[in-house]
């Protein structure tokens, strides 16, 4: 399956209506109308630069000397230095940023696994099965999303402290295995509801039980939603610092998000250079994961799946 199948098919000769041409000249594949394509590219790139400016600014700053970051108006570093990266990576008291990356990696991996399985199970039930109290439970699920976490954090902390789980990864990861992220349940419910019923009925005739149906039919068909879940879980967990700050106070357990906060102290000194350097590094895994997985969202397997 080619990546951008839909649009290419849409761009048949039948799309030759004048109205459409003015509306969306990009669509035309024929070489003689190449010019508008460049225009589109130019537009996308121009807007893209606005999107990227912060990133570029941060990366540029990370190569500047600490005193230069705020003093010079220049975008590019005057004296290119790697000092910030070296200083930042060193971390604190013998614990390097490598350790923080590892910790974040472990937490993120566990969270992804938890969310993908636990949420998809719940979502399957909500989307495809009939059971008592379905509507009520679905409502409760949404309601759990509506309470600001600042008021639940204290009782939660008391609870985890009672269980002696402070300074472990459990408070950060276990909840995902118990599908506490209603966002993803709801997301998958919406996707699963869009899967044509006929497929399921066909499978049912084959004598497929609900468990096999979930595993062999619904899950593969929900890959775009699952990948979306993975990406979001990755990004949000990677960036979420408040709960990591509260539950991990031992520096050996610090994560990237918490580690980054060490460089800034609003009551005194801050190592901006090191902050930018490590922030830039911390974006790399996010970026890589995003680039790698996004094609699964976009390319999906929908067409193949539906036809199969």
């Amino acid at each position: 399956m080619e990546p951008n199948k839909i649009p290419e098919e849409e761009v048949g000769p039948s799309v030759a209506k004048p109205l459409l041409k003015t509306l969306d000249p990009v669509k035309n594949h024929k070489p003689r109308v190449k010019k508008p394509r460049y225009l589109t590219h130019a537009l996308i790139i121009a807007i893209g630069l606005i999107m990227l400016y912060p990133l570029l600014w941060m990366v540029m700053s990370s190569f500047k000397e600490n005193t230069e970051i705020f003093q010079s108006g220049s975008f590019f570093p005057k004296n290119f230095t790697l000092e910030n990266y070296i200083q930042g990576w060193t971390g604190v008291s013998g614990v390097t940023f490598g350790r923080f990356f590892l910790n974040s990696g472990i937490i993120v991996t566990l969270c992804i696994i938890g969310n993908v399985f636990a949420c998809s199970m719940a979502a399957y039930a909500f989307a495809r099965l009939d059971f008592a109290f379905k509507k009520v439970l679905f409502m409760i699920m949404l309601i759990t999303l509506m309470l600001p976490f600042h008021v639940t954090v204290i009782p939660q902390y008391i609870m985890f402290n009672y269980l002696d789980w402070i300074n472990t990864f459990i408070p950060l990861t276990l909840p995902k295995f118990l599908a506490t992220e209603g966002f993803f349940i709801f997301l998958m419910v919406q996707f699963m509801r869009s899967i044509p019923r006929e497929l399921e009925e066909a499978a049912q005739i084959d004598g497929c039980g609900k468990i096999r149906m979930y595993w062999q039919l619904i899950m593969p068909l929900s890959v775009p939603a699952l990948i979306t879940t993975m990406i979001f879980t990755f990004i949000w967990t990677w960036n979420d610092f408040f709960s990591q700050l509260l539950y991990l106070s031992n520096i050996k357990l610090y994560t990237v998000a918490v580690g980054l906060r060490m460089f800034v102290d609003s009551m005194g000194e801050s190592s901006w250079g090191a902050l930018f350097a490590m922030s830039a590094l911390s974006l790399i895994p996010l970026f890589v994961v995003f680039i790698f997985f996004q094609r699964y969202i976009i390319e999906g397997i929908t067409a193949g799946g539906v036809k199969g």
């Binding site: 008291s93 700050l245 106070s249 609003s266 009551m267």
Partner: peptide, 12 residues
């Protein structure tokens, strides 16, 4: 040892 920036410190 436990530490954090000013705001984080008081929240925690």
């Amino acid at each position: 040892r436990e530490f954090g920036g000013w705001n984080d410190y008081w929240d925690r």
